[in-house]
Design a protein around this nucleic acid. Structure first.
Lengths: 213, 213
DNA sequence: GGTCGATTAGTACGGATGGGCTATGGGACG
DNA sequence: CGTCCCATAGCCCATCCGTACTAATCGACC
C-alpha cells in the first residue's frame, strides 16, 4: 500500500510550541528522513495537508480542544485522508474520551505522560498498521476537579455570609454589611458550620478561601 | 549577593516527559553551563533540592496538579528555599490562578503557549531579580511585589501555629498538638494578627489558606 | 388550607478569643 | 556583658462566638 519508503510526510500539530518541538524531535528520531511539518491549530493542519498532491502519511495531533469538537475534527480528517495514519496525543486519559477518539477514526492515542521513547515506539507501531492506545494507567493525571463543588448546597444567604466570614469579618460587621441583625448572622454561621461539617469559624474561612470564595 | 556565576543549579519539573525535555533544552540554551536536574513530581523536586548543601538557584515547575494543592506546594517551597527563584509554567492562564500563584511566593508565571525564546527570556529576567508574568501571546507584565510577600517575616513557630489555625483548630487544640500551653498559643496568634495585619482569627485562616499553607 | 424551608429576630448561657500586663530562659550579636 | 529576639507561661478582663430554644414572616408545593 505504501511504496514510498524514502520520504515520509508527517504533520505535527500542537498549540504549545515547547511540546510541538518535543514531538517533532521524537518523530525525527523515529523516522530520520521524514519531512515534518508543524501546525498550531486545525486550520494549519488542513492547509499543510492539502498543500501537497500526495496526502500526508501521518498526522500527530494534540487534542486541541478536549471535547466533542475534537472527535468531530478527527472524523473529518479521517474522511478526507483515508490512507493517512492519525495519532492523537493528549494530556487527558479519560477512558470514555479515548474510546470516542478511536471511534472517530484515529489510529492511535498516546498520553503526553508517556516517555519520548515509548511515544516513538507507538508512532512506529501505528505506522506499521497497528492500532495503539497508550497512556499512564497509574493515575498521574486523573484530572480531578472537585474544588468548585463543595459550595453548591448552600442557600444564597449562606453564601453571602460565608464570603464575609472568609474576609475575616466579625458577626457584627457582617450584620452591618448585610443590614440584618447580628443574631441572624449567627444563625447563618451556625448553619454553615453544620453544612460544611466544620467546627470553627476559622475552618469555615479557610475552606471558603481554598474553594475560591 | 550571588557570587556563583559559574554553575547555576536549576531544577526542571514536569510530569510530561516530552515537555520536560523541551523545558530543559530551553534552560540549557539560556544558561549554557547550568546543571539541570529533572523531576516528574513534587517529591522528586524536593529530593533534588535537598540533595545538595546549596539551595537550587531556580525552580522551573509545571503546575503538576492544577488546583489549590499547587499554591500550597509553592508556598512550602518558598518557605524552604527563600533565596531560590521559583518559576511556574502552566497550560492554564487564568488571571485569578496566576494571582494566587504569585501570592504563594512564585517569582514568575509563564504560559506554555509562549514560544521557547520568550520562555528563555522570561527565565533570564527572573534570574535577574525581576518578577515576570507572561502568558497571552500579547505581552510581558512585570508583577508588583508588595502583596505577594505575606509569609516572609514569620518565625518558624508562628508558621506552625498559622498552619493549624488555617485548619480551624482552637487554641487549646493547637496547644495539645504542639505540646505547649494554650497561653503560649495565644501569644503566637496575637503576634500573627499583628504580623499579617488582620484583626481576626478567621482572616488569619483565610489568608493562610490563600497563601497556600 | 397545611406543610416545609428560608430568612428574619430575640434570649440565655458557657466557653473561646484576644489585648494588656509581667516574667523566665536561651541564643545571637556586638 | 548587655541587648535584642524568640519561645515559653501565667493572670485579668472585656468581648466574641456558638448552641439551644422560641417565634414570626414569606413563598413554594401538595
Amino acid at each position: 500500500m505504501h511504496e514510498r519508503t524514502v520520504k515520509d510526510r508527517i504533520i505535527v500539530a500542537d498549540d504549545h510550541p515547547v511540546f510541538r518541538d518535543g514531538l517533532k524531535r521524537i518523530v525525527l528520531k523515529q523516522f530520520p528522513g521524514a519531512q515534518v511539518q508543524e501546525a498550531g491549530c486545525m486550520e494549519e493542519v488542513l492547509a499543510c495537508a492539502r498543500a501537497s498532491e500526495e496526502p500526508p502519511d501521518t498526522f500527530v495531533l494534540d487534542l486541541l480542544f478536549p471535547g466533542l469538537d475534537s472527535t468531530r475534527s478527527i472524523g473529518e480528517l479521517r474522511q478526507e485522508f483515508r490512507s493517512s495514519s492519525i495519532v492523537i496525543v493528549s494530556m487527558v486519559d479519560d477512558a470514555a474520551l479515548i474510546q470516542d477518539i478511536m471511534a472517530a477514526g484515529a489510529d492511535g492515542f498516546i498520553g503526553k505522560s508517556v516517555s519520548p521513547d515509548e511515544i516513538g515506539a507507538a508512532l512506529a507501531a501505528v505506522r506499521n498498521g497497528e492500532f495503539v492506545v497508550k497512556f499512564s494507567p497509574s493515575g498521574l493525571v486523573p484530572a480531578r476537579h472537585e474544588p468548585p463543588a463543595p459550595l453548591e448546597p448552600l442557600t444564597p444567604r449562606q453564601r453571602d455570609v460565608l464570603r464575609l466570614v472568609a474576609d475575616g469579618l466579625s458577626n457584627k460587621e457582617i450584620a452591618r454589611k448585610l443590614e440584618i441583625s447580628p443574631f441572624t448572622v449567627r444563625i447563618h454561621v451556625s448553619s454553615l458550620l453544620r453544612a460544611l461539617n466544620v467546627g470553627t469559624r476559622s475552618a469555615l474561612a479557610a475552606k471558603a478561601a481554598k474553594a475560591g470564595l
